[in-house]
Write a protein that binds this DNA or RNA. Structure first.
Lengths: 329, 329
DNA sequence: TTGAAAGCGTTACCAG
DNA sequence: CTGGTAACGCTTTCAA
């Protein structure tokens, strides 16, 4: 592959001059410029960015770590952040941990070797090993989806406590009193713990009630279906169901429909996320909408700030939500 | 930031020896190894992969270009391909063209500067400018979703003609005779042209019929809704509808429901993609299932082959589909 | 307006 | 077993 050297030889000038032409610097005679340009075309020279990066000590690389791609939060988030990063003239180096915790830490290390300028981490949990890895990272890290501000890690999070609280209020207002929460993994503070806690507080505060049960499963329709099936047996008095995600809620509604109950009537159901599924299901699902794409943009901007100024003006950003009222509650 | 040089000074050995320790090469006295290791820990040395890449002339980078992230095909595809690329010890450099054609060509160039080892391109169309850019690329390119084999570009595509043909047969078998196709952009050979052509051939071949109309819009529920609304006015005899994607079909069914017709009964509807939406809608949507994740894996493997052997054993891979029978047809 | 040479942080080869 | 030195392909001084 042709290098600067070859172009120089071919056009009979020095490497310095070729470099100047390539970078379009002023102070090169028009005739030599042409000569060089011709040589470049002839040998099909393509600048080697690796060498440039080494020389300039700057890679323009932003590392992004996600637990999985097939998810509204990450897919839309990536659409948002990639546009910001692109505008900044930088590149996205993408790593998919495939829900494997250990991988996340590994990627942080590898990204630092690759000399990324910053890291965006979509997290599903936050333990001390991960916190340590983030602290060790030379490249600044912005956490998305879990709150790391207690450990001084800049974070962009969703207002999960408020969502839970609002869910509780809506279920009560719709006449439900025997309410169950279907969450995910207890390690997932944001999605599982905070949303439940918000629900709990709403019931307590408004009617001195407690949720009947905190069920847990996975982020899928099938899992929601299976859990609801069991819940209908265990808690026959059930009349309100708050699900940590829309997919779980969709599955749960299917289970309810298959029993002798009617979702949205006998049992009020609420999801979170405003997945496209939620507007298409029968009954359509009442839920909460998060601006996933905007979250990606904000996170990217926060990281760019951090890179630029070595310290961000905000260390924690809480994304609000919108209440979506449909038929299920 | 500490470099090899600093570690060498700190531990009182040469750079060569430090390099050997870092790369865990044999032939280093245990005591010096320890000494060096200590120095590494002390100054928090992290190997500079940029320098390594320059020296080794190898970046382990795979460029991936997508039109958008928020799509089943790309999200699931990325899940598949990233696992293969990761297994191969390589990295994904991601570019989001945001449906902007010119960007794709730009990214191919920039990726070559970054010295990626290969490029995976999710394409929505294929014009001569793009073909040229691909030909110019030093890094091998595998095309996903559009057929570039005529131009000698290795491609992984879906069997869109067959899907269209099968759709025609199913609609006819269900009793439809006045059939309309809702496609997308005419530049999209695979999704718009091939699927329509398959439909046309099935109608022609089986019953000497022709499709009533070829409508076109975007990849969205809303667009499907709008188009179907118009179609119901223009073609009152309409009794079969083949939609290029499930989302379009979902929108169309909504329009049908809002008229005095019943989707799945008065008008048979078929989509493509087996989107999760399709199993949740009312009526549930009959469709075709593509293995998007597997497509990503196959494409990645094909590219790795190409990188390894400088030429692939297969130059075109056609992914098959599965017929999903539900209520709408 | 141009060229020579140093240096970015590694690895690899050849001596010792 | 270890060290010196030359690359890798570029940019950036400093001189000419």
């Amino acid at each position: 592959m042709a290098g600067l050297h070859d172009v120089a030889k071919l056009s009979g000038v020095s490497k310095s001059t070729v470099s100047r032409v390539i970078n379009n610097e002023s102070g090169v005679k028009a005739s030599t410029k042409e000569k060089v340009q011709k040589a470049i075309d002839v040998c099909g020279y393509v600048a080697n960015q690796v060498a440039r990066d080494l020389q300039s000590q700057k890679t323009n690389l932003i590392g992004v770590i996600v637990p999985r791609m097939y998810s509204n939060a990450t897919a839309k988030g990536l659409d948002g952040l990639s546009s910001i990063i692109d505008q900044a003239g930088k590149y996205v180096l993408l790593a998919n941990s495939q829900q494997n915790h250990a991988q996340e830490i590994e990627y942080i290390k590898r990204f630092n070797q690759k000399r990324v300028e910053g890291i965006l981490l979509y997290a599903t949990h936050l333990d001390s090993a991960l916190v340590d890895a983030i602290k060790q990272s030379t490249a600044p890290v912005v956490l998305i989806g879990q709150d790391g501000s207690l450990f001084n890690i800049p974070s962009v999070i969703y207002d999960d406590l408020s969502v839970g609280f609002s869910a509780g209020q809506r279920l009560l207002a719709a006449g439900a009193a025997n309410i169950v929460f279907i969450g995910v993994n207890s390690q997932d503070i944001a999605v599982d713990q905070c949303r439940f806690e918000g629900l709990r507080q709403a019931l307590q505060h408004t009617k001195q009630l407690s949720p009947l049960f905190h069920s847990r499963g996975e982020f899928s329709i099938e899992s929601g279906y299976q859990q609801a099936k069991q819940l209908l047996i265990d808690w026959p008095q059930l009349d309100g169901l708050f699900c940590a995600t829309d997919r779980i809620a969709i599955g749960a509604m299917k289970a309810i429909s298959e029993s002798d109950k009617v979702p949205g009537k006998d049992i009020k159901v609420l999801g979170v996320g405003n997945d496209e599924l939620s507007q298409v299901s029968t009954p359509s699902l009442s839920t909460f909408s998060y601006a996933f794409d905007l979250t990606g943009e904000k996170s990217a901007n926060m990281l760019l700030d951090l890179i630029e100024n070595k310290q961000s003006s905000v260390s924690k950003l809480v994304m609000s939500f919108e209440i979506i009222d449909r038929e299920s509650c």
